[in-house]
């Protein structure tokens, strides 16, 4: 009986998480288009629903009913596999993400995470790396020059940012003496890691921008020079998969930044419910991502690699050394 209840709870949590993550891109696209509009002194979507609130729904219906086109010369197997490969890892990663300690419902303590892995951080980085295969396969399978160029850039981009990103969080692990995200947040109860790890945060954030493939590092789908990059040939629901994946990764990088460097659900000054603190911080980072997108131009991809190898990597190593000396 105990086991059944525990299992049922996990299934329920996973279902809730998946539904939440699948639906979240709807409001996020609306917010992004509104922010884009207002930064450019436009209004953004206005006509579907109040202030265009139903625009994402309309877009979703449009994408679902569009023809699902596969180019004649494409590699059909990989072409169909790629969107799923891009979509699944970001969802899987959220299994290891804690959203808070626990809440009590009807006298039972229910934890706000699916699992508390002791190597959660390692898991996150390992799984999120898989997402890149979706992008690479998608670009390759489409048999279009723009798509191939997009996925080539992704390869170059991936090796330049994943290493600094991995190194950047080592400082956090050293401070918390644990790789469990729960322990990392608990260790920040008094002082957030950003105070001790400004360099680590900087490296993590820049690499995270590259990870989420957002401007200024959205080389894989640079609209200006590559059509739409790796998903040029995708349409309909498969295209929607790539879009959802992009938004979930953006959310993931924000969540990781909050958990690793900004104290997770630990609040300051104002006593708010922990979950609300968490949501507010994540929302801030999501806003930051969108704000960046409509402010900065795109880096060339040799510049991205130069930044990755010549700036971020030495910085992250220096960060490890400094942390090691200062806190040992």
């Amino acid at each position: 009986m105990e086991l059944v209840v525990a299992l049922g709870l996990i299934v329920f949590k996973v279902a809730l998480l998946i539904a939440f993550l699948l639906l979240l891109p709807l409001p996020l696209t609306w917010v992004e288009r509104k922010i884009a509009g207002h930064i450019q002194q436009r209004l953004g979507p206005m006509r579907v629903g109040w202030h265009g609130l139903l625009q994402p729904v309309a877009d979703g219906i449009k994408l679902l009913t569009k023809e699902d086109h596969i180019p004649a010369e494409a590699d059909h197997f990989l072409f169909k596999l790629a969107p799923i490969l891009a979509l699944a890892p970001p969802f899987v990663v959220f299994v290891a993400i804690p959203f808070g300690e626990s809440v009590s419902v009807l006298g039972n303590e229910i934890t706000l995470y699916v699992s508390n892995m002791n190597v959660a951080l390692l898991f996150v980085f390992a799984v999120i790396g898989l997402e890149v295969y979706g992008v690479i396969f998608g670009g390759w399978a489409a048999n279009s020059k723009y798509a191939v160029l997009g996925s080539l850039r992704t390869c170059a981009q991936m090796i330049s940012y994943e290493i600094p990103m991995g190194f950047a969080v080592i400082g956090v692990v050293m401070l918390a003496q644990s790789m469990s995200l729960l322990d990392i947040v608990r260790a920040q109860a008094d002082v957030w890691n950003i105070v001790y790890q400004p360099i680590g945060f900087f490296v993590f954030f820049v690499a995270g921008l590259a990870e989420a493939q957002r401007i200024p590092f959205d080389l894989a789908e640079a609209e200006g020079d590559l059509g739409a990059g790796f998903h040029t040939e995708y349409s309909g629901i498969r295209f929607a998969f790539f879009m959802v994946s992009e938004y979930v990764i953006m959310l993931l990088v924000s969540v990781l930044a909050v958990i690793l460097f900004f104290g997770g659900w630990n609040g300051v000054l104002v006593p708010l419910p922990p979950l609300l603190w968490f949501a507010l911080k994540v929302a801030f980072f999501v806003y930051l991502f969108m704000w960046f997108r409509f402010t900065f131009p795109r880096y060339r991809y040799d510049q991205l690699m130069a930044i990755g190898w010549k700036v971020l990597l030495p910085l992250s190593m220096a960060n490890i050394i400094i942390t090691g000396i200062a806190f040992s």
Binding site: I35, G37, H38, I39, Q41, R42, L43, M46, T295
Partner: peptide, 13 residues
Amino acid sequence: TFGYMFSRSVTMQ
């Protein structure tokens, strides 16, 4: 861009 975000829009609806 932050300043622009809170300026009036020029869109004619």
